[in-house]
Design a protein around this nucleic acid. Structure first.
Lengths: 250, 250
DNA sequence: CGAATGGTTGACGTATGTCAATGTATGTGG
DNA sequence: CCACATACATTGACATACGTCAACCATTCG
């Protein structure tokens, strides 16, 4: 069941992600610093917990390949998925600024990550202000996504919520060049993941998904998502697309 | 109806906020840079819109006195308040990294702000890495708050939501030294603000508020909030308090 | 073969939303 | 000083979107 091998991190100068063209170019000295900052690269199976809530590893990560998600749980087990992580996404920063991780991170699919030494973060700002600037950018960007998710769970109907989720992930994959010619993309989320991300119950998520499908707006089978009518979907969700610019990458 | 005057920004070296002890100390050179970066200070009435959705002013702000909030709206008028801003909070950063503000900011009470030149942001990172580091910290901190709000709107019941809102604002005010001996603090939100922040309807927010009050957990009258039983409230909300450390301040 | 995982469906309960009216301050212009 | 408007809190009656419970099915895997 592994037709294509999971991409693994290489030396930063030959980084496969950077080669995709979706990210900013960096100077050689900056690349060198990043490579030196990187303490390891890891390959983890689906379901693996990279950051455990309450526990502070202090490590920083860039997701290199695969999918993951950030989440929080209440003491009785209710779970909220905060956002999904795609290749190039940076995480672990918040724990540097507080004691104990305030959220968990779990691999959604088999995934590979670059691991950085969190205790040298300050050195990064001093030695390479450009990278510090990029980090802030990434942080602000993630905050934008959270703003959108908050609007979604707080004010959108179930139908709108599901629509937003589909479009948003689709757009993000598109930016990474991971959408095929026929408007299809990989989609490894279970309905439980969607429910936890949208603040809905599993059953209602399922029904809403089928309702959307019946409207001919998308199809979702065999782990692949196809947007049959992106425009109508965007309209229904009242979704504001973000420009497709290059992003920073650590 | 203005018994006490609204504090106004002064020269950074004599900043009243910094004098409160709630924030990090900075070196003289850093203070000088900030003062130079500041293009103005403004005083605005309650209800004034500091950042309008979709419109990009490109300016950066620190709230100096009073309350404000960030929000997003859907095209049919539904509004979600993303988070509340208290003195010392920095905002406007996200618009530097995207075209057009993706959220609005409105003054909740009469307020005063420091305004900074957004186009010199990169210079800040180069000349004063420490300030860049602080900015990232502030950004990560706000993201933590959004994570919490997302958990709240996504997975907490109405009673829990209201409880979290009260505790959280109380704790933040406490950090700023704005809570009186008798566990009371200013509380200028209308029920509509609370509803929009919590993803509830106005009517249900009102009923939930009264239910909490009937349980003897708080009282709320004449613009002041009193926590009658902080412990029980925290328990009910399943709220994880953040440590009371000093924060960065730009 | 049985266990586990994820999807599907129906019946039913309820937390929350909607509508609409009333009350109470506070402000304002004549 | 009155007439009126506005903002916000309050309350009751009623509607519904969504949650819960409990099955059953399909696929995969050991």
């Amino acid at each position: 069941m592994t037709p294509d091998a999971l991409p693994l991190p290489t030396r930063c100068a030959h980084c496969g992600l950077r080669a995709s063209g979706a990210f900013h170019q960096l100077a050689a000295s900056e690349l060198g610093f990043i490579e030196d900052l990187r303490s390891a690269s890891e390959r983890v199976p689906a379901g693996h917990v990279l950051i455990r809530e309450q526990v502070d590893g202090g490590r920083l990560y860039t997701l290199y390949a695969g999918w993951a998600f950030r989440y929080k749980t209440l003491s009785d087990g209710r779970r909220q998925i905060l956002n999904f992580l795609l290749p190039g996404d940076f995480f672990g920063l918040q724990q540097r600024f507080s004691e104990g991780a305030t959220y968990g991170v779990e691999a959604l699919t088999e995934a590979s990550v670059c691991v950085f030494q969190g205790n040298r973060l300050w050195e990064l700002y001093r030695a390479h202000p450009r990278l510090g600037y990029d980090l802030t950018w990434l942080c602000a960007r993630e905050e934008q996504m959270l703003d959108e998710n908050l609007l979604t769970t707080g004010r959108r109907s179930a139908l709108e919520r599901v629509a937003v989720l589909l479009i948003h992930l689709f757009k993000r994959l598109q930016r990474l060049g991971l959408v095929a010619e026929d408007n299809s993309c990989a989609f490894p989320l279970t309905q439980q993941h969607m429910a936890d991300a949208l603040g809905l119950s599993l059953v209602h998520t399922h029904r809403t998904l089928r309702r959307l499908q019946a409207l001919g707006l998308h199809s979702l089978e065999d782990g692949r998502l196809v947007l049959r009518n992106p425009h109508a979907l965007t309209q229904l969700a009242d979704y504001a697309a973000q420009p497709m610019e290059q992003l920073p990458l650590l």
